[in-house]
Design a protein around this nucleic acid. Sequence first.
DNA 1: CCCTATTTGTTCGTATGTATT
DNA 2: AAATACATACGAACAAATAGG
Lengths: 93, 93
Amino acid sequence: MVDVGRRRWTPSVVRVDQVDHGSYVPVYQQLVAIMKKRIESGEFPPGRLIPSEKTLQQEYGVGRDTVRRVVEILREEGLIFTVPHRGSYVAER
Amino acid sequence: MVDVGRRRWTPSVVRVDQVDHGSYVPVYQQLVAIMKKRIESGEFPPGRLIPSEKTLQQEYGVGRDTVRRVVEILREEGLIFTVPHRGSYVAER
DNA sequence: CCCTATTTGTTCGTATGTATT
DNA sequence: AAATACATACGAACAAATAGG
């Protein structure tokens, strides 16, 4: 449970396994957090392909712009590496 | 473009045109002037693609809003023409 | 060799939010 | 109020590389 901020009503705390379009926190930042969790949880071990951009778009109901930004950030932080036209793999350790 | 001298092997010129965010002149107007100069100098001859919006954003450290306005002005003045999903080309003169 | 599907790369189109001057 | 400017976010179109049959 993480406080992602909200606009009008309560919880003030929500699950972060889905994106909240009404949050003050940008969608791409929420998705970065989600993907980090999925990677660190071991769901995607080192060497494993993460879902394609298209899959991620559908899974989270976000645009490609957003997904590509998320992937770019994960890559910059060294969590994954991308092979053009093949996909993005989880980096070692 | 300014002669910075002190170099045997040419370019002999270096781009010093950068946007001044502290100026009273709006950033978009500064960038319009810069791009006009780049086009008229022959850096981008007729038929040549000018840098993409994203590239321009990065090169000059400005927002997309600003870049799009610049491109729109150059287009209205007939210096370039834009092909959707391809880019903007320098017009024949 | 060819055809097709998948996937990332790149670009412009459009709209909204936020802040500052 | 209006202009300026950056950030976020969704679409759409097409290219190019890859893999498989």
